[in-house]
């Protein structure tokens, strides 16, 4: 394995780990608003790392850029979707969890 392939594998594993953490967040967080945090932030970072990992393996600059564009558009659409879901939940009166858990 070349150093580039190793680096790419490291990024892919890190991305997969973040996607897993995002899913764990969706399952563990107590209400819809907290779950959105897990979906937007953690999964975007996970996807970003996967994109970087794949871009390192890609054969041309154009393909690498295409992957980057995929990430950019997913980023924008997930930020908007997240806001739409949060707004719909608020207006339907989904009750936010009122607990506090200090570290």
């Amino acid at each position: 394995m070349s150093p580039l392939e190793l680096l790419s594998a490291a990024f892919l594993f890190a991305g997969a780990a973040f996607c897993l953490a995002g899913t764990v967040g969706v399952l563990r967080f107590p209400d819809v608003y907290c779950r959105l945090h897990a979906l937007t932030k953690v999964d975007n970072l996970g996807l970003g790392l996967v994109v970087v990992g794949l871009a390192l393996r890609s054969s041309s600059w154009a393909t690498a850029l295409k992957l980057l564009l995929v990430w950019l558009f997913v980023l924008i659409s997930s930020a908007f979707t997240c806001q739409l879901i949060a707004r719909a939940a608020l207006r339907r009166g989904a009750v936010p969890w009122g607990g506090r858990r200090e570290p």
Binding site: A21, H37, A38, L45
Partner: peptide, 10 residues
Amino acid sequence: GGFDVARRAL
């Protein structure tokens, strides 16, 4: 942001 939320989730 991703690190922060992932840490809290795990």
